[in-house]
């Protein structure tokens, strides 16, 4: 699992769950996502992300989601019992 954080929000991706359908890549309004060489979800750049959560709710496989970090900055992100990023 990878976490990308800006301020108090973080975008988390779990390539292990990804089936590579590309729905999130297609629907991202900021075009920050892509499928990597092995056809799994990856983040191009996190800065433009507006945390709209469209990718999260469109993903059929729960492989990408947004979380509110407990503390801003580089400290660990809480992931609702799904492990610490």
């Amino acid at each position: 699992m990878q976490a990308y954080k800006i301020g108090t929000y973080a975008l988390l991706v779990e390539p292990k769950r990804c089936k590579g359908c590309g729905l999130c890549v297609y629907s991202c309004p900021k075009q920050i996502l892509f499928l990597n060489g092995s056809g799994k979800i990856a983040v191009k750049e996190i800065e433009p992300c507006i945390f709209c959560r469209i990718c999260e709710m469109r993903c059929p496989d729960f492989a990408i989601w947004v979380e509110k970090a407990l503390t801003p900055g580089p400290s660990p992100v809480m992931t609702h019992g799904r492990g610490v990023a």
Partner: peptide
């Protein structure tokens, strides 16, 4: 996400 529906399935 613990399901085996196809990639890009609309049902979930």
């Amino acid at each position: 996400g613990a399901h085996a529906l196809c990639a890009g399935c609309g049902t979930p």
